[in-house]
């Protein structure tokens, strides 16, 4: 692995992308800003002194993505074809989740633009709310996925979302306990939201061997799994629709998904 922004003498330089193939590229970055529950309530009710907080932060994020090359020294100026910013108000964790998606047909990736968009959207949220809450914390900024280009598609590894203990393959010494696992699947909108398709979870990690405990355990691993708390979400055990109090056995396949819309 080499750092392409360093030349043979270890000096910083801008990578020549003229000979690179153009391809459709997309990157998604996420982050969050934590605040007092009262601040979040004001934000969702539109009661903050500076006006529509989310609309302003969205524009700020989009503008920032377009100007990434002015901020990051060796970044190319890109003709972005799309920048979208989404906010999710999380009252359980008292924070706002920010996600940015950037897209273009071009020769370089757009993850720096997505990261810049998320960062500036978070900074704008801070600015818009700081009159009532100075203790807000911006955090967990990272790239979730990128597609297109020579290095191929990349999605944040499930390992980063769920501790390695949950994936027995990754540990050299497999204890008898860790082999008692269930496979967890996510479908459709829920899969996209969480960014995970399949997981292996050790039953020993759960408070109790049932689906409620599995959901609880997942939501403590990563805030994205909070989407499972939505009452619309259905679950199946071994391909049979079941209720959340259903017990689990080693080897079971558990699936979570939104209401079905076939036909």
């Amino acid at each position: 692995m080499t750092l392409t922004h360093l030349n043979a003498r270890g000096e910083a330089h801008m990578v020549d992308v003229a000979d690179k193939q153009e391809s459709r590229r997309e990157a998604v970055a996420t982050g969050k800003i934590s605040m007092q529950p009262e601040t979040l309530a004001l934000l969702s009710d539109g009661g903050l002194p500076k006006g529509d907080v989310l609309a302003t932060a969205r524009i700020a994020g989009i503008q920032a993505a377009k100007r990434t090359h002015e901020l990051i020294p060796l970044c190319h100026q890109l003709m972005l074809s799309k920048v979208s910013i989404e906010f999710e108000l999380d009252h359980t964790h008292s924070c706002v989740h920010v996600s940015a998606r950037c897209r273009l047909n071009g020769r370089t990736g757009v993850e720096m633009e997505a990261l810049t968009a998320v960062s500036v959207a978070c900074l704008t949220l801070y600015d818009m709310c700081k009159a009532v809450d100075k203790g807000m914390i911006i955090g967990d900024i990272g790239v979730e996925s990128k597609t297109g280009g020579k290095s191929g598609d990349w999605v944040r590894d499930d390992l980063n979302k769920v501790s390695s203990k949950a994936l027995p393959e990754s540990s050299l010494e497999k204890s008898a306990e860790s082999q008692k696992t269930v496979t967890v699947l996510f479908f459709a909108e829920l899969r996209e939201r969480i960014g995970v398709e399949k997981l292996s979870v050790s039953l020993g990690d759960l408070g109790a061997p049932d689906i409620v405990s599995l959901k609880r355990w997942l939501t403590t691993r990563h805030t994205d799994f909070m989407a499972l708390e939505n009452p619309r979400i259905l679950c199946a055990r071994n391909q049979d629709m079941v209720s959340v109090d259903t017990m689990l056995k080693p080897g079971d396949e558990v699936a979570f998904f939104p209401p079905v819309t076939g036909g």
């Binding site: 459709a188 909108e189 629709m241 699936a255 998904f257 939104p258 079905v260 819309t261 076939g262 036909g263």
Partner: peptide
């Protein structure tokens, strides 16, 4: 069959 398929079969449309 269609009424049950619509509400029970695990298909999702985007």
């Amino acid at each position: 069959i269609m009424d049950l398929l619509k509400t029970q079969a695990p298909f999702w449309k985007k």
